[in-house]
Design a protein around this nucleic acid. Structure first.
Lengths: 285, 285
DNA sequence: CGCCGTGATACCTGCCAGGTATCACAGCGC
DNA sequence: GCGCTGTGATACCTGGCAGGTATCACGGCG
């Protein structure tokens, strides 16, 4: 059967995400009629209805859901192909360059040790560090902006990547130093989940949404630090968070929070010497 | 930057595989000049040389190698998107259908048990079994011909898939019943690797090539069975091979061959109820 | 009953993918 | 040396299709 063109997938993904032909067309920088036509053609070629148009917006069919998921993966793969090929050709003079994606709020100590150890290796590839927000490493690996990433389970998902475990650590409660609970030597999740006047901070889920609850929605570490210092919230955070604590903060170990495991992860089928070297260095730390 | 179209990737992959514009064009069902032009355009758009033309054939540059690997993955993803969407829409009447890929020469017992157990589950999805050759399950999962597969490490690679371990077993030497070694109760790899007049059969590697050596190149299990029965070769094979032995064959356990682990594997990010049910059934066997 | 806002249709046009014919060049047999 | 063959590149043309504009059909809503 004839293949899907990435153009068609781009169009479909835009419509499926917006659930609105007009807005999708605008986002794609084109007029609405050709977009409608393109989607109709796609449906005819696949022999399957993708969208349920009912005069008041648009809904995905089961087949549409599948194509949205697989289409996104395909577009990521295409973007990755372009980026990686471009990079492989651009800098063939000084040897390969690696792009390492890491959470900006991640463990500075580990990152520093990894970069130092790698730089000390003879013939090590140059490593560019790409710091990202809370959950973007996965997307960066998938679409080729990064070659390798530091990921933290259970926050990041390792599904679809190769990885090696680097370290395991507990989590702490980060709370205002002045709060009575800050004096405790250990806490449990139950202790901090229903404190009057000190709601539990809410981290974004993988889909970008937030779990329900009274606490503030956290977008980055700075914001969290400020909120805790102001006495407005308490948060669960990995041990390495101790390194950025303010005087107004206190960290108390949590006995029953799930442990956080740091992994180094990379796209499957990557077989470059530079990447292998960095991974080897990392596992030896 | 503007995306790559799958058309361009198809063209490039064809040329990169053939290393010959004329043959590639023929394979693509088009004339050579537009193909040359398309590749030139692609190189200009990426800003990177992909092929080294030197008047006597064509060679891949470093960037070309990268684009070949990533391009194949992208094309597989696109094919998978089309197939899975088509299937998701086609059979929405009787519930989801699953396509299970399994090696034709794999363990019949395990497959039978899995299918029986799954069929006994209430509300189980219909499972279509797709039997394939020696190493095709990976490609089938990647390009959407199958939804889930039984894979055998170390023969299959699990890189890029999610999987669960199902069983572990040893390997046996399969040799002519009349041969003196057939009388032994156990053997080591050293015992069978240099037997005069009985060379070791060579299995295909993952890239489709064969390791060097004097023994015959094996393409399927029937061929192997015939060769062993004729006294022409000895082969290393998982325990489950005992089920298809002929009277002319003997199987002797190998003490130092790597164990074979059976996994059930599926593409990452598959989150269908039907698949989850089959995997759950499999892990409970 | 007009008036939006939705997606679909009709129709036109310019671009580009692809075809044919040909070139430029390197090896090679004589 | 001189064709001959086989390589990829170039020149030029054409048809189809992607995309634009104008408009329709229709459902909610004041």
């Amino acid at each position: 059967m004839d293949d899907l063109e990435t153009r068609e997938l781009r169009y479909f993904v835009a419509v499926a995400e917006e659930l609105h032909f007009g807005r999708a067309a605008q986002r794609l920088g084109m007029a609405q009629p050709p977009l409608s036509r393109a989607i109709q053609q796609l449906e005819r070629r696949l022999g399957v209805g993708l969208l349920e148009r009912d005069r008041r917006g648009v809904a995905l069919t089961a087949a549409g859901e599948v194509l949205l998921r697989e289409g996104r993966a395909t577009l990521d793969a295409a973007a990755a192909a372009a980026r990686r090929a471009r990079r492989a050709g651009g800098a063939d003079g000084p040897g390969e360059r690696l792009v390492l994606a890491a959470k900006a709020a991640g463990s500075h100590e580990l990152l520093q040790k990894l970069l130092d150890a790698h730089a000390a290796e003879p013939g090590a590839a140059e490593v560019e560090v790409l710091l990202c927000g809370l959950c973007e490493q996965e997307a960066m690996l998938r679409d080729g902006r990064a070659d390798v990433a530091l990921m933290y389970t259970p926050f990041n998902s390792l599904v679809g990547f190769d990885s090696e475990e680097l370290a395991t650590e507990g989590q702490v409660a980060i709370l205002p130093a002045a709060h009575p609970l800050a004096a405790r030597t250990t806490l449990s999740l139950a202790d901090i989940s229903d404190v009057p006047g000190l709601p539990l901070a809410r981290w974004p889920r993988r889909d970008g949404g937030y779990p329900p609850g009274p606490g503030p929605e956290i977008r980055d570490q700075t914001q969290l630090a400020q909120l805790v210092a102001l006495g407005r919230t308490v948060a669960v955070f990995p041990e390495y968070g101790r390194s950025w604590l303010w005087a107004e903060h206190a960290a108390v170990p949590l006995t029953d929070a799930p442990p956080v495991v740091t992994h180094i992860a990379w796209p499957p089928h990557s077989r470059s010497r530079a990447l292998a070297g960095l991974v080897r260095t990392a596992t030896r730390l």
